[in-house]
């Protein structure tokens, strides 16, 4: 255990690690995800619109589930990209991070802050898209899909924590991406199957996510300290 408690806050710890504070990081994450979603959907809509007209575009993008699927994919990739950032010693910055005050304690705070930032970011991103959908509907089962995708993305965050115990960098990264990609799509498709009803699957996933995130996070940190921090 650390002998001396450092006075750093989580936001300060994350600033040491990524150069910007907690709020800026969360905001940035949310904005990038939202912008990518809106731009992509708008792009496809306009492209099909120009080719085959408004009705076809509406059918292809909104009715046929494309907008729902991309909500999941965009979220999944975003979470995966942030979650595979583990500040290894051999990567640029790795040695600096290991020399700052607090040592592993600071690392712990930074990683915890980043997970919180991802969780808040997911909620904000999906919240914004959901609100947009409420104004101009472009998703089938929009509200239910938003909730479901959010729940499964959060479950994914927990599973990525478990995956990060794997030592091999390539395997860990690939698996994290595949897992996030898969689980976010599961989130979108379950709503399709239940025809817009939120049911037992979603409740179970939500409970699992709430339980898994803190447990897996602790596990991930313990394993990191033992096997990767300063070996």
């Amino acid at each position: 255990m650390q002998k001396n408690k450092t006075s750093l806050t989580m936001s300060q710890a994350v600033k040491i690690y990524i150069g910007s504070g907690f709020f800026k990081q969360t905001l940035q994450f949310t904005c990038i995800m939202t912008v990518i979603y809106v731009v992509t959907i708008a792009f496809f809509f306009l492209m099909i619109c120009a080719e085959s007209g408004f009705a076809a575009a509406r059918n292809e993008v909104c009715e046929s589930f494309m907008s729902n699927m991309f909500l999941a994919i965009d979220g999944g990739i975003g979470v995966a990209l942030l979650s595979v950032q583990t500040f290894e010693k051999k990567l640029p910055g790795g040695k600096f991070f290991r020399s700052v005050k607090g040592g592993f304690d600071t690392y712990k705070k930074a990683r915890t802050a980043l997970v919180l930032s991802v969780i808040i970011g997911i909620c904000l991103y999906i919240g914004i898209i959901g609100a947009l959908n409420a104004v101009i509907p472009f998703m089938r089962y929009g509200a239910a899909t938003c909730v479901s995708v959010a729940v499964f993305l959060l479950l994914g965050v927990g599973i990525v924590n478990l995956i990060s115990v794997i030592k091999n960098d390539l395997a860990r990264t690939l698996l994290s991406f595949m897992q996030m990609f898969g689980i976010s799509l599961v989130g979108a498709f379950t709503v399709h199957i239940t025809k817009g009803e939120l049911g037992i699957v979603h409740i179970t996933a939500a409970i699992l996510a709430i339980l898994l995130i803190p447990v897996s996070h602790k596990l991930m940190l313990a394993s990191y300290r033992k096997r990767r921090w300063n070996t």
Binding site: I18, G19, S99
Partner: peptide, 28 residues
């Protein structure tokens, strides 16, 4: 102790400003 390594001591997308922000918190 003032330590630095020779290669990739900081993340490569950092600037002088990021370094100052980070170092200021990382050390007293």
């Amino acid at each position: 102790i003032g330590y630095c390594s020779s290669a990739n001591f900081f993340p490569m997308d950092w600037t002088l400003k990021t370094i100052a922000n980070s170092m200021e918190l990382g050390f007293d």
